[in-house]
């Protein structure tokens, strides 16, 4: 059993794992009860598990603990709260940009990272920026509106 220290939503934390290959996803969900991080595929194909690592969007389902150690991890819970959402969350709420919402956390995290890189995107740039995140409910048009709204906030 090894211990891994990292920063999580602004706090210093450590987690134990019997396997250095254990994906960050399971540690976030089961040791820290950060359930906003969603398991979608475990293959890095869908983006439902997206979190920020040192400010960049990564797939927590394929990020081993050994790689997360020493990094700064931000999850959807670290952005804002229902009472005080950050600008991306606020834009998603304003546009009612979810149906089942299972992809939403990953979508918001990917959007947050994208907007850091591309603060004033066009609609086409947002489409390309979110190409790796899947939404099965077909909420794409609202999500695009929400990201553009956030970019103006």
């Amino acid at each position: 059993m090894a211990t891994y220290s990292f920063r999580l939503n602004g706090r210093s934390v450590s987690a134990d794992s019997w396997d250095a290959a254990q994906p960050l996803l399971y540690v976030l969900r089961n040791q820290f009860a950060l359930h906003g991080v969603k398991f979608g595929c475990g293959l890095g194909q869908c983006g439902a598990c997206t979190v920020l690592m040192d400010g960049r969007a990564v797939r927590s389902c394929t990020t081993p603990m050994s790689l997360a150690a020493g990094r700064a991890i931000t999850t959807i819970e670290g952005l804002g709260t229902a009472q005080k959402p950050d600008r991306v969350q606020a834009a998603f709420i304003a546009e009612q940009a979810a149906q089942c919402g299972y992809c939403t956390s990953g979508m918001i995290m990917a959007s947050a990272a994208f907007l850091t890189q591309t603060p004033k995107p066009t609609r086409d740039q947002v489409k390309q920026g979110l190409a790796g995140n899947l939404c099965r409910c077909g909420t794409h048009t609202r999500i695009l509106r929400a990201v553009l709204r956030a970019s103006r906030a």
Partner: peptide
């Protein structure tokens, strides 16, 4: 919507 967009909606 607020909980779904902040990671607190319980699935």
């Amino acid at each position: 919507m607020p909980d779904k967009c902040t990671g607190h909606h319980v699935y």
